[in-house]
Write a protein that binds this DNA or RNA. Sequence first.
DNA 1: CCTGAATGGTTCCCTGTGCAACCATTCTGC
DNA 2: GCAGAATGGTTGCACAGGGAACCATTCAGG
Lengths: 158, 158
Amino acid sequence: MTHYASDAQFDLDQFLPYRLNRLADQISEQLAHLYESSYSLTIAQWRVLAWLNQCEVLTAKQIRDATRMDKARVSRAVQVLVDRQLISRSPDQQDQRAHHLRLTEAGCALLNQLLPEAQAWEASLLSALSGAERGALLKAMAKLEDALGQSAVVNPAT
Amino acid sequence: MTHYASDAQFDLDQFLPYRLNRLADQISEQLAHLYESSYSLTIAQWRVLAWLNQCEVLTAKQIRDATRMDKARVSRAVQVLVDRQLISRSPDQQDQRAHHLRLTEAGCALLNQLLPEAQAWEASLLSALSGAERGALLKAMAKLEDALGQSAVVNPAT
DNA sequence: CCTGAATGGTTCCCTGTGCAACCATTCTGC
DNA sequence: GCAGAATGGTTGCACAGGGAACCATTCAGG
């Protein structure tokens, strides 16, 4: 009945990747429930809609870059949204491979309902933090994303 | 060629759930690559190991509570780890439904290799932040998790 | 005790997604 | 111009994970 333990003292609960993931999962899960139950939207689909709401017209590649989602994931999300006539897809004249994506009126109407709900949810969540804390949180997150983007964190062994 | 846009001005890039998820996904993806490529471990499996390293003996339920993972997910992770003889499962005498889970010597050996790598990776990531920033980040995350736990954020409409 | 509710775990089914292979188009170098 | 690389996008395959149904055991109430 020996107890084996690694040499390194290690507290998973203090491990940033784990904590971040647990938090993000929790938030994501609740929000996903909102999207799914009321609007039958996937997170991926919601992201596509939200970006299109901002940018008017985008190609799948641009969405892929903005969201860092897999190309297949974007492709499938777009397909569903087109089928549901929430967005339209028209060929790009300059590049026959690409397509312009835009919100349809229906898509826009859906967002007009969904956006306020999402914002209210976020506000309620953020009410747990002071303004300064919010700022610090976002700043730290931005720095981390930056560091990851620069590939500053890659294979620390080499 | 009209452009439909929702009334609400909304910047997905400033939307905390989205940002948090994007960041967590990115981190998770890179770490998962480490676990998977070198040790054939799932994130779920890694979490089980890490908690067992800390607590010596746990039941699946306790792991479920600690990690907030689905019970099925825990069950499957445990199964694989038992098959690989990285952990052992022995019946709980008090409660015949539950099982005690512990690290085996092999499991501990694996962690002795993996933990330093994980910690080095984390350190490299965290080097993008000052000490104060780290503190602020962790504090904000804790508050958010707290808020979610208290169900403070549920169905803002009601 | 004995019945019904609750609990720890496992399994089934289904969906979303990552990866790799692929197609079509566009770009590059010669 | 033309061959080969690169790029935008789609599809097939395999798999992890959520939800619900399920089994066995334990607990609560009469």
